[in-house]
């Protein structure tokens, strides 16, 4: 699997209700050391209920300038949340003949939504 298989995929709840699109993958460098850096672990999916993509991550940071770009982008992407990877039940299969059409990510029942803000 490559990152593009997940990015821009529609996100569905277990009952089929659409909740948004995958706009980014949250990685944490806490795996086993591989070379100089730790190996990045896929921690979760950043999901936007309104847009397919993000612009410079304003909705995930505490940056408030330049005005009015930052507040506009923050409002445009409001509702963005983080879903932890263990809450993902199914991911898109590349070239899956049984599931043609746009790629979808299906979440587990009772999944939790976390604040997607990046801490410094």
């Amino acid at each position: 699997m490559i990152a593009s298989d997940l990015l821009d995929a529609r996100v569905l709840e277990a009952d089929g209700q659409a909740v948004g699109w995958v706009v980014d993958l949250r990685l944490v460098l806490d795996g086993t050391t591989d070379g100089i850096l730790a190996r990045p672990r896929l921690h979760g999916l950043v999901v936007s209920p309104r847009t397919r993509t993000s612009f410079l991550g304003f909705e995930r940071s505490d940056v408030r300038s330049p005005w009015p770009i930052a507040p506009l982008l923050r409002r445009w992407h409001r509702g963005t949340f983080l879903v932890h990877w263990p809450d993902v039940a199914r991911v898109p299969e590349p070239d899956d003949a049984d599931h043609p059409g746009p790629a979808v990510v299906v979440l587990r029942p009772g999944y939790l939504r976390y604040d997607a803000t990046l801490h410094r």
């Binding site: 990152a3 990015l7 993958l25 990685l27 944490v28 460098l29 730790a38 990045p40 993509t53 995930r60």
Partner: peptide, 9 residues
Amino acid sequence: PGRVLDARL
């Protein structure tokens, strides 16, 4: 516990 990176960002 480790550095956090967003793939696209």
